[in-house]
Amino acid sequence: MAISLSKGQKVDLTKTNPGLTKIIIGLGWDTNKYDGSSDFDLDASAFLLGGSGKVQSEQDFIFYNNPSGAEGAVVHTGDNKTGAGEGDDEQIKVDLSKVPATIEKIDFTITIHEAAERKQNFGQVSNAYVRIFNEVTDEELIRYDLGEDFSVETAIVVAELYRHGNEWKFNAVGSGFQGGLAALCANFGLNV
């Protein structure tokens, strides 16, 4: 049975699941009905962060156009342009045993593609969640439902995995940003 978290909660991932190495981070969402003419295209990404809390290079920003990083330890499985249907809308696979020691945190984010041009924000999104499940057994381990706390934000840091000694922990972040992908990238040390 999965552990359900609230914003700000942290939980051990590998300590409570000995031998766990291959996980999948599933991100999902629905869009509310609105009067706009454009479809919503939400995108999941991962930022691989060093000790400074910043990426060390552009290769540490994992998304649909740069789907693999950390020497293949982190892989984005593809872009879902509509979010239609049940289950995860986008997934990122992580092999914890292969993440280079220089990477201390992996932050998972969701952004709205062309949010400003399409006049879209997270106030128009519902049922957003992140979950972690064991890639080998398909068992869901952790789930964080973001709730309806957002309005004008166009990017969200959903959660992060971080090293704690030899173990990995999970933090339900739920922090929103205005300014979309550019603001998010600047926060993590990238210029777009």
Rank of each mutant, 00 (worst) to 15 (best):
S52E: 12
G176R: 10
K22P: 06
V152N: 14
G53Y: 10
T137W: 06
F188Q: 13
G8Q: 04
F47L: 06
A2T: 07
S57I: 07
G174V: 03
S57D: 12
Q59E: 15
G36H: 03
G36C: 07
Q59F: 15
V157Y: 05
T82R: 09
K22M: 05
I24R: 06
W168Y: 04
V157S: 11
G180V: 04
E86D: 11
A84F: 09
A182D: 15
N134G: 09
T154K: 06
I3C: 08
L20F: 00
D39S: 10
G174Y: 03
N65I: 13
L184A: 07
A70I: 02
I103F: 01
V99G: 00
G78V: 04
N65G: 10
G174I: 01
R131N: 11
I142M: 06
A44K: 02
S57V: 06
E160I: 07
E139G: 14
D39C: 05
A186Y: 13
A46M: 08
M1G: 14
S52R: 14
A128H: 08
G8A: 01
N65A: 13
S151Q: 13
N65V: 12
G53D: 08
Q9G: 00
F61C: 07
I132R: 08
V11N: 03
E58N: 15
G51T: 13
S126V: 09
A128G: 09
S37E: 11
F47K: 01
G28D: 00
I25R: 03
Q120F: 08
P67G: 10
N80P: 09
G78Y: 02
A44C: 05
G123Q: 04
L13N: 00
L48C: 03
A128I: 07
S68H: 07
T102Y: 06
A46C: 10
P100F: 01
P18C: 01
I3P: 07
A183C: 08
Y34P: 05
G19V: 04
F108Q: 05
T16A: 06
Y64L: 04
G147P: 01
L141P: 02
D89L: 01
I110K: 14
V125R: 00
A183N: 12
K81N: 11
Q178V: 15
I25E: 00
M1S: 15
D88A: 02
E114N: 15
D39R: 10
E71K: 14
A116L: 10
L146T: 02
H113S: 13
Q178D: 13
R131T: 09
A159L: 08
H164P: 09
V99W: 00
M1F: 12
H164N: 15
G83A: 06
L181V: 10
E167T: 10
A115Y: 10
Q124I: 06
I156S: 06
A2G: 05
D107I: 13
